[in-house]
């Protein structure tokens, strides 16, 4: 039982570390600013989520008392990642001059500079 648990925690840690690394690598490798926004919002969030999950299980296993703070941190990260990504995308659109497709109705995009 304990070996199985240890294997699970180790696997989660390795997967988390790899995804965190991929996220930061994508930030360097991708070419355009909007493409770069994809890497940290998805890969890093999942990587840190998996790592924190492993840490929570490991702490419970080692000390015998559950540490809910770590779970709360990963929930918080998962909730805030889309919001900061939306804000960064809005800022990029505000500062840049990307050609945008038309909207489906008469109203224009909300952040468009007039």
């Amino acid at each position: 039982m304990s070996l199985l648990l240890e294997t699970c925690i180790s696997l989660l840690l390795v997967i988390g570390g790899l995804f965190g690394l991929i996220g930061s690598f994508g930030l360097l490798k991708l070419k355009t600013p909007m493409q770069r926004l994809h890497a940290p919002t998805k890969a890093t969030t999942l990587g840190v989520g998996a790592t924190l999950l492993a840490a929570a299980i490991a702490m419970y296993w080692q000390t015998g008392s559950a540490s809910w703070q770590v779970v709360m941190i990963s929930v918080f990260l998962f909730l805030t990642a889309p919001v900061s990504a939306l804000y960064l995308a809005k800022t990029h659109l505000h500062l840049g001059k990307d050609p945008l497709p038309p909207t489906s109705t008469k109203a224009d995009w909300a952040g468009k500079r007039r």
Binding site: H38, L93, P101, T103, S104, T105, A107, W109, A110
Partner: peptide, 25 residues
């Protein structure tokens, strides 16, 4: 919008002024 950002290769970037269209990258 949050779901789109977290799922396959897409990212919500902007709303239209009347909230009837999402701009996705």
């Amino acid at each position: 919008a949050g779901t789109i950002t977290l799922t396959p290769g897409t990212l919500t970037a902007e709303f239209s002024a009347d909230s009837k269209t999402l701009l996705i990258h």
